[in-house]
């Protein structure tokens, strides 16, 4: 009677001690949970971004980003292990969050690199031809397309729709420029004209013929070189 009851009391006391500890840890738990939820939301976004662009970026970029994801995973796993003994993990989670911020920067940089490789040839061609009389009418439309694309430079596509939007806009610009039908020789000539390095020697028959078509001849002037 007494033996069983007193043993029960001992067990209850132990239980109370544990519960007291648990009670005292409520605030720590709340803080940890809060930090963890924030990080989870953040990391989920990053993963989503990454998954959207991983097949567009270079192998080295991809590798670098995944290493960083791995480091965040290591941080979180360590914090998870420590959580059993120490309920307040805000600091550790904050560290992981800092790492995630760096990862986000890398993601942006990778995307920018990809963006540049995709848009640069078109943008350069557009710069070359927009002074030509036959392009003048399309200039506004082409520049709008460029402006639309430029919006994607500073912000990663947030979802597949945005990414498809980017792809479509890029394709649209490329098609419009292709329709102008510039031969490679003409493109080279125009490029030199734009950079101020074109000489009379550049005016081969094909180029000369192209210059004299329509009203193009009025668009070119001859100057003495320095």
């Amino acid at each position: 009677m007494i033996v069983a009851a007193s043993k029960n009391v001992c067990d209850q006391l132990e239980n109370i001690a544990k519960l007291e500890v648990a009670k005292s840890q409520i605030k720590d738990l709340e803080a940890t949970l809060d930090a963890l939820r924030q990080l989870k939301t953040y990391v989920s976004q990053l993963i989503q971004f990454y998954q959207l662009i991983q097949d567009r970026i270079s192998e080295s970029d991809r590798s670098s980003l995944e290493i960083q994801f791995d480091q965040i995973l290591q941080d979180i796993s360590f914090s998870h292990k420590s959580f059993a003994d120490q309920r307040r993990q805000v600091k550790a989670i904050e560290q992981a969050k800092d790492r995630a911020k760096k990862l986000e920067e890398r993601l942006n940089e990778s995307w920018k690199r990809y963006f540049k490789t995709q848009t640069n040839p078109h943008f350069e061609l557009l710069d070359l031809v927009q002074s030509l009389p036959e392009v003048r009418e399309q200039k506004v439309g082409l520049n709008q397309l460029r402006a639309q694309l430029m919006q994607f430079r500073d912000a990663l596509p947030r979802n597949p729709i945005q990414r498809a939007n980017f792809d479509e806009t890029l394709q649209h610009l490329a098609n419009r420029l292709d329709n102008l039908n510039f031969s490679p020789e003409v493109k080279t000539f125009l490029s030199k004209v734009r950079s101020g390095t074109a000489t009379l020697a550049e005016l081969n028959n094909e180029v000369l013929e192209w210059c004299q078509q329509g009203e193009r001849a009025k668009g070119f002037f001859i100057k003495f070189g320095n």
Binding site: L33, E66, D70, I76, S79, H80, F83
Partner: peptide
Amino acid sequence: EYSALEQALKSVV
């Protein structure tokens, strides 16, 4: 929450 986060990260890694 920890497990979910770890799981998500593992999917990438």
